[in-house]
Nucleic acid binder design. Structure first.
Lengths: 244, 244
DNA sequence: CGTATTATTGAATACCATCAACAGACGTGG
DNA sequence: CCACGTCTGTTGATGGTATTCAATAATACG
């Protein structure tokens, strides 16, 4: 079955050919080990925008690595309000928060056409016994998520609206860069509403801050297309510097 | 060396005798396996109030389970402000956020006289290969921390000061209950300042909310001694109900 | 091409932070 | 044991930042 190599997008069928391997679970695996991991990975049809990868409350049985596209995860609290817990780009792992209760505590939904690698957790666990590198990487991924979430707590509890959005953009920029895309220009996969939800801000505030950043010459934005003009100052704002 | 059994406090030297085992890493381990875990655990002298268990930036080489007392973890951001990332009660595990970078991203400091079990991570990792139950439990603990941190993100991004503090107290109450202590009366190990820092509120706000809760008959508090009078309504407030 | 959704902008309000003053607790040492 | 200073906690007054409400503009989608 000939699968044409579409640019740099990771549409190929195996970890060892995947451009994302150095960012993903296979990181630092030997080629043979990569094949072993590859054997348990399932690659289904892509999800269309709005489709669900898994839903809050469903039985946990696999984690997922994003191959292309983007997803958001969110939870619905008792009083029905949605809290977005993260946006997920290629190479990032989803679903690990379901290990504890054996139930996904969040819903994962595609922000655009998205393909993922499904990794049955039972089998991953078994394989991790034989592959120390894999075991370590899995721990590292979880550890990093804890660290990132705690950074997020800092953002939410101490930073101003300006700093939150600057941080958000700088973070996205860095993640794009790590994947070989432009650090200064990219397309947001999420709406202003979703940005606000994620950052603990009202939509209107997000909009205002975007406007203010553009007036200040920090960036250029039309709709979801963003171009960072002054990365340095954006970082400064992200760090807590106020804009005058 | 005769070590007197002081009430229910887990001062004994082995996991299999520890009253916290069902909440801690040994959960669901066979007795023999518990001994294996026990062999790698180091139990040092207790920390006095204010002493550090580990510091932000130090090389990561162990995780710690709290045996008695309480600790806080916090990180210092670039601009020097402290963000408390958590308070840790007996049976809870600290340090897992250091796995990724092999460096602790937070400082852990004793809130009172505190004893911990040190678990060298290398050895824990090796042992987890042989003990599936242990491996799973370790994953569960990390998974739960991710979930808890995301709950915290919800709290910080959506809840009012009243709801934050109610949630905080309800959560503490539940954790006390799980350890066999009173659900309605306990002593806070942290200052109002630290509560505020953790919840993203000013000290004054914390103080005011405590006062308001007392006026509303929800609780009784003098200093760090707290007694919950109306758990039901406290839960309601924690869920988002406003107090009139 | 029209409708629905999303984004922007303005005005008024609410919530919490900050500033300031004071009270109470704690610990130290006289 | 009490006096003292410091740290922690409480309370009041004020102001700032972000929310909410409302209206309009732009974009996406069938």
């Amino acid at each position: 079955m000939p699968e044409p190599a579409k640019n740099r997008a990771p549409h190929q069928a195996h970890c060892k050919d995947c451009s994302l391997a150095p960012l993903c679970l296979p990181l630092s695996l030997e080629l043979a080990d990569m094949d072993a991991l590859d054997d348990i990975v399932k690659r289904g049809r892509p999800l269309k925008k709005g489709e669900y990868l898994f839903r809050q409350g469903e039985a946990f049985d696999a984690v997922y690595a994003v191959r292309s596209g983007a997803l958001k995860t969110f939870s619905l609290s008792d009083n029905g309000e949605e809290q977005i817990t993260g946006f997920h780009l290629p190479s990032e792992l989803l679903g690990l928060s379901g290990v504890d209760t054996q139930t996904y505590p969040v819903t994962a939904q595609a922000q655009e056409t998205t393909s993922v690698c499904e990794i049955p957790f039972e089998r991953l666990d078994e394989l991790s016994v034989q592959l120390p590198q894999l075991r370590r990487q899995l721990m590292r991924v979880m550890s990093r998520e804890i660290r990132d979430d705690q950074q997020m707590m800092l953002l939410l509890s101490k930073k101003t609206a300006d700093a939150r959005i600057a941080t958000f953009l700088v973070n996205l920029s860095a993640r794009h860069t790590a994947r070989g895309y432009s650090a200064v220009q990219f397309r947001l996969s999420m709406s202003r509403n979703e940005i606000g939800n994620f950052l603990g801000l009202a939509v209107e505030t997000v909009s205002r801050v975007f406007t203010r950043f553009q007036q200040g010459g920090l960036l250029e934005a039309q709709g979801k297309e963003v171009r960072i003009l002054d990365a340095q100052q954006l970082c400064a704002v992200a760090g807590g510097t106020m804009l005058d």
